[in-house]
Nucleic acid binder design. Structure first.
Lengths: 337, 337
DNA sequence: AATTGGCACTCGGGAAGCTTGAGTGCCAAG
DNA sequence: CTTGGCACTCAAGCTTCCCGAGTGCCAATT
């Protein structure tokens, strides 16, 4: 159905269109890529490709432009992942290695990805549910007010104030802290929830109301409001004039945590590189954009995802290379922290 | 020089131009505002206003448009601050009151401001230097790794990991924690730095290297890298088509913490409402935007600033009303936390 | 059966010219 | 100082025209 040359033609069309942002015609094609056939032959091939839905004409008498389906084929079968240059790799490593603390790692990653790809970068914080408790700290701010700080092995620090039903003493707090840490330290957060639920017994009757307040905050914050923080950056790259169209929608989508979650959620759970092209992605208003995403994680495990968002007309091999490299390095950095 | 009617004309021009985004002519002016004079009279006034530099013509045979100087006069002498409606006030209060924790307050404030003004909102975290220590927590993550968590009375929680020169025991950590909290609790961070510097004496000789590592991290993080976090939102509002021009510059400026700092820094230190119009603002690339900013704080004191950024052609009275109201409410919320 | 040159056809986009009307400046009269 | 009148200007929109890139098809060639 599609012989080698037709595929080569598609590949060439994608490349040219990506780099010029203009519909590409048969003549230009034979000139720029050394296909040893005449334009007429290419035209025949293009007719077939169009019939199959891989390319389309913006209007009669214009060249061809890849469709989403065309990009899909290109990504799946025609383009490799372009590895970064050694210089770029080194730059990434040193830039990331200089960071301290999870927040810093995340913001640096966003910048890095945005700069590397000249597009919008999206990075998710390591999932809470998949990480383990490293420490729980209780700080008595006032007789009836505690600050609960939860630290995970992925470096996340979550905090929340609690209003207690009864006044408490430092001793009570110390006891509660000891109980919590003894039972939760090193446990997965998913396990932790169940454990906390069964912990009331170990608390002296008098302190139970307070303890319960703390427990419920912990459970609530860790599971139900399983806050998946997502950060993005590089929006200035959206101002590249080929966008303008639908720019507002894109910015709105980016500012809506929920939407971002849905977007990243759609991408495969694996730590593999995933590409969502145009209409393939689940978010209305991002139908003219593509998302290149990858999971990242410390051990073998995927803790969260990061991604790059750009126009469907993007440099897929390059973007994929950047995303996968950054994902790997972020994982490494996270291990050390 | 400028009699009352001329001022009225300027006011009318600003209002009309802001609402229509079209140069406003003499006829339209007499029609829409009930000035009891003829267009010809208005033309004379406009000629004077133009000569003085308050308005200008985009081209011959077009109406007039306010200049930065014109907006300045408008803001200083011709427009009050438009108070929010009671309904809006209530909405703000309940929305902000529902937040828990400083992060939440800040992100909610950004959203609120952006939505209220339909422009870009910028909010700075409460200054570290002006707040006081509420608690310092040390968590032993590994024999040679500590997590230092600093909690201020403004609700900020700063964390940083420290690599220790020597391995340590839980006891050492507990002692250090006790010493730190005993000496620093309730102190201003500015004082705290000096106190920490004189604290080495109280530490057993054997633990001094470790303690010093912790001390230096504390000092470093609190003073030198006096990290002023700034958050912004509402960038989707930039897509309103009158902008397009210079959009890239604006987005770039927003993503650059340093630039934002400079911008807010320029605005008066008082908790008063400040307006920077067009070329008045110090940031290249924001020369077509205006900034309406205000300090906010818990006690009588200004802890940080918040602002709204929009085109010079903005609704100043409305924006000023929103900014000042939100600043006040945020201050109140911060008190309670 | 695939490839190729030739040719008629299409149509977006830029250039040029035209018209329209909003808006001005100026002046003389009230 | 205000006003009506009037000539003048010029951006923006419309129409028209033209050009050329690019196509599809066909008959000839390999």
């Amino acid at each position: 159905m599609l012989d080698d040359r037709k595929l080569a033609v598609l590949r060439a069309i994608v490349k040219d269109y990506v780099s010029t942002n203009e519909p590409v015609g048969s003549r230009a094609l034979v000139d720029r890529h050394n296909l040893d056939v005449s334009p007429a032959t290419i035209r025949n091939d293009m007719a077939v490709l169009e019939e199959q839905g891989f390319i389309t004409q913006p209007h009669t008498s214009a060249g061809r432009v890849p469709t989403d389906k065309g990009y899909r084929l290109f990504v799946d079968r025609l383009s490799g992942i372009k590895p970064l240059s050694p210089a770029e790799r080194r730059a990434i490593q040193t830039y990331l290695a200089a960071s301290y603390g999870l927040d810093d790692v995340v913001t640096r990653t966003v910048r890095l990805l945005a700069q590397l790809t000249r597009q919008v970068a999206v990075v998710q914080y390591p999932s809470l549910t998949r990480s383990a408790v490293r420490h729980i700290e209780l700080v008595r701010l006032a007789p009836e007010k505690l600050l609960v700080v939860l630290i995970t092995d992925t470096g996340r620090v979550e905090q929340r104030t609690v209003d207690l039903p009864d006044p408490c003493e430092d001793d009570d707090v110390a006891h509660l802290r000891a109980v919590l840490n003894a039972s939760l330290d090193g446990r997965r957060l998913t396990e932790a929830v169940e454990i906390v639920a069964g912990l009331t017994d170990r608390i002296p009757l008098a302190s139970r109301p307070n303890a319960d307040a703390v427990f419920s905050i912990i459970m609530e914050n860790l599971v139900e409001r399983n806050e998946e923080k997502i950060v993005f950056g590089g929006t200035a790259n959206l101002a590249a004039p080929d966008f303008s169209q639908g720019l507002r929608e894109v910015l709105e989508a980016l500012e809506e945590q929920v939407v971002l979650m849905r977007l990243l959620g759609e991408a495969s759970d694996q730590s593999l590189l995933t590409v969502l092209i145009g209409t393939e992605n689940p978010v209305e208003g991002l139908r003219t954009t593509s998302l290149v995403s990858s999971g990242y994680g410390s051990g073998g495990e995927t803790l969260a995802k990061l991604a790059v968002l750009g126009p469907t007309r993007m440099d897929y091999p390059g973007t994929m290379g950047a995303v996968s490299a950054v994902a790997r390095y972020v994982g490494e950095i996270l291990m050390e922290t």
